[in-house]
Write a protein that binds this DNA or RNA. Structure first.
Length: 463
RNA sequence: GUCCCCAUCGUCUAGAGGCCUAGGACACCUCCCUUUCACGGAGGCGACCGGGGUUCGACUCCCCGUGGGGACGCCA
């Protein structure tokens, strides 16, 4: 049997971190088993679905490198198929028309809640042998309901949570087609998973409650029931549930914030899944290792600090040309034009080990391409009256040397020795003068990259 | 309210009855490296929700409790 998984987002917003992980796991599972990964857009909520959201989801998946083998399929384009099945169910008697109005239903729910019961449709329009249905009201277009088994239990062996068993008495006759004839979620999912031969459904555990309904529907249709794996949710950094209002951000926001997709992918992979003590691995490795047996059933809290650590790791490993292209753009976004000298790649090499995000990297090296704003406190502290003449003397010497790191270092050393100082005494004021602040890599390395003219100019201007 | 799910360091997690004096990672602390800040290296701090069982033996299995979460839509 070929493994076929799917990711089925509804295009009502961007691809957030929870959806991305579901997609990642589904993708990895298919890849691991040399199966197919299908992308399906669940856009039957016409009110809330937007083409922008579809694009945002596609962008997010592409950025993470999650490629799909089939699709994207759009449910709105499958209407004929759904209607055909609904017609068939109506004919077979596994579905029926219900004329209850929304108001009637709301009142019913209200009453049941009051009575301490689980709100359920009471089946008043469900045809039974010998039962007399209420008279059909005029002007109320009916919905179509699924005739759920009235007794017994539905059970499945969830690949993450183990066996889950639910009594049919807990379920009611769900609506499969709205009054306007459009099919609803639980129904479309079932038909699609069936038609698309999905073997493994990986999804958020907020769908656990839908599963028994879907299984009943599948059985009524005579379809195979796929395996289910319900992934627990991802909580925000603060342990709170992620929502549009609170903490839920688009995966593309991570791009904007300077994270590498491989870092996000690696981080997400470890959130709720593990492979012994392994922490750092790429997508290829993940696809080889991934399994359902090591998925944690409990919710996981997002930890940005760990993501940052992983990101720093991947920045150190990243291809220089690729990094340079990215950083060039980020500098441009900051209004900093990257000139030929110093060479961007060299500057990145010097700085990549010191940052956690690409934005930090861009910010840190901007001073190579435009005059830095000098940190007043740093200047005050390091550019003392006594040191100014030393720097001036050093400047003259620098003017005459070959511009290599070694020569520069020797010149600084000379200034240090001849004045009976410690190295930082001279290095720090230079650092402030050249970079604007008190932190940088080795000052001779910085100077070498900055170039003789620029160094002399900045010292001159700064003094 | 009803049903369902979950529960190991602050966080992500390892753990398939003896391998556990509970391991790793992030964060934090100390030291080392050092030209400042980082990086890196070496250490350290730090957890099995509670109570009952089962068992020669329970982090691991069962029950109850507690806490947290989810679902109960003509949303997905």
């Amino acid at each position: 049997m070929t493994i076929r998984t799917r990711f089925a987002p509804s295009p009502t917003g961007f691809l957030h971190i929870g959806g991305a992980r579901t997609a990642l796991f589904s993708w990895a599972y298919a890849r691991k088993h040399h199966g197919q990964f299908i992308l399906r857009i669940e856009d039957t909520d016409v009110e809330r679905s937007t083409p922008e959201a579809v694009q945002a989801i596609l962008d997010g998946m592409q950025w993470l490198g999650l490629d799909w083998d089939e699709g994207p399929f759009y449910q709105m384009q499958r209407m004929d198929r759904y209607k055909e099945i609904i017609r068939q169910m109506l004919d077979e008697g596994t579905a029926y028309y219900c004329y209850s109005s929304r108001e009637e239903l709301d009142a019913m729910r209200e009453q049941q809640m009051q009575a301490g019961l689980k709100p359920r449709y009471d089946g008043r329009w469900r045809p039974e042998e010998g039962k007399i249905l209420p008279p059909k009201p005029e002007n109320i277009p009916p919905v179509v309901r699924f005739r759920n088994p009235p007794s017994g239990t539905v059970a499945w062996d969830d690949l993450v949570k183990g066996r889950i068993e639910i009594s049919n008495t807990e379920l009611d006759d769900l609506i499969i087609a709205r009054a306007d004839g459009t099919p609803t979620y639980n129904f479309c999912v079932v038909v699609d998973d069936w038609d698309m031969n999905i073997t493994h459904v990986l999804r958020g555990d907020d769908h656990v409650n839908n599963t028994p309904r879907q299984i009943n529907l599948l059985r009524a249709l005579g379809a195979n029931v796929p395996q289910y794996a319900h992934l627990s949710m991802i909580l925000g950094d603060d342990g709170q549930k992620l929502s549009k209002r609170h903490g839920a951000v688009s995966v593309m926001q991570y791009h904007g914030d300077g994270y590498l997709p491989e870092a996000v992918l690696n981080y997400l992979a470890r959130l709720g899944w593990s492979h012994g003590d392994d922490e750092v691995f790429d997508g290829r490795q993940f696809c080889q290792w991934f399994d359902l047996d090591h998925i944690t059933p409990s919710a996981a809290q997002f930890n940005t600090e760990k993501l940052r650590w992983l990101n720093a790791h991947y920045i150190k490993q990243a291809d220089l040309a690729h990094l340079a292209a990215d950083i060039r753009q980020r500098l441009e976004d900051r209004g900093v034009a990257v000139s030929e000298h110093p060479e961007l790649r060299s500057v990145i090499e010097l700085y990549r080990e010191r940052v956690h995000t690409l934005n930090e990297l861009a910010d840190a090296i901007a001073y190579f391409y435009h005059k830095p704003v000098m940190d007043a406190a740093a200047r005050e502290k390091h550019l003392t009256l006594e040191i100014v003449p030393v720097i001036q003397a050093l400047t003259e010497q620098l003017a005459g040397i070959d511009w290599t790191s070694e020569q520069i270092h020797a010149a600084i050393d000379h200034a240090v020795q001849s004045n009976g100082l410690k190295f930082p005494k001279v290095a720090m004021p230079l650092r402030v003068l050249l970079t604007g602040g008190a932190q940088s890599p080795s000052i001779d390395a910085v100077m070498a990259l900055l170039g003789k003219n620029e160094v002399l100019a900045r010292i001159h201007e700064g003094l």
